[in-house]
Design a protein around this nucleic acid. Structure first.
Lengths: 112, 112
DNA sequence: TATTATACATAAGAAAATTATGTATATTTG
DNA sequence: CAAATATACATAATTTTCTTATGTATAATA
């Protein structure tokens, strides 16, 4: 389908950041929120999202809580204490990266 | 060794950008230039760099020219015509990504 | 009633790194 | 002058993180 210009490694940070802002979210909700916040720029695929959520949970950064809504299940994820700490780290790393890349890539800053 | 916060996929763009600014460069020179420009923030490892250069060459984005300096060889890479076009595309994509991520991650823009 | 949206999941494969080696020459330092 | 560091290439095994494709099932909408 290939629109995607999501650099590998950034998905975790996006998930964590959203959970830091929203307390608890479920998978599908995350995909919709990202689409909304980025005006369709970023589309998180399910094949990337669910494994990422499972991994973050396995690492102890997220807690999961299953809820039944109507007849359908939802898995609500929220940050653990460790997850909150890691979120801060990852956000800082991301900011650094953005700043650095901005400088490398920005045409106004191209003094060799 | 793991400092690295290079998001996967960004290395190609970095290489192309540097070659757009410097006409021709060799591998080792690229690693040093990135280190210098980012004040040590980004360190391009050889295991990532050389395969990336080979790939860009195989895709016809780079031309290579071997030079002998003293008793040691250098492989100078430069953009092909196609490479120049692709560089523009990749830079635009990167700019988009940086803008989008900035919005997602920037604390000042955290209205849910 | 058929399509689209909601909601989860996983498996095969590809892409792009990391980490560890290997080879060799040139320069610097103790 | 010997040892260490820097220069300069390379590749292989492994890991990480996606894409793409597929599967299941319920709810809402056209």
């Amino acid at each position: 389908m290939g629109n995607q210009k999501l650099y590998k490694g950034s998905l975790q940070t996006i998930i964590l950041k959203l959970l830091a802002q929203n307390d608890k979210m479920y998978g599908y909700e995350i995909t919709q929120k990202v689409k909304e916040l980025t005006k369709g720029e970023l589309k998180i695929t399910e094949g990337a999202l669910y494994p990422a959520l499972h991994k973050l949970e396995a690492e102890g950064l997220l807690d999961v809580e299953v809820a039944k809504v109507g007849n359908r299940l939802r898995k609500y994820y929220k940050l653990t204490e460790n997850g909150t700490k890691e979120t801060a780290n990852k956000l800082e790393e991301m900011q650094e990266f953005l700043k650095t890349m901005q400088q490398l890539v920005n045409p106004k800053f191209s003094l060799e």
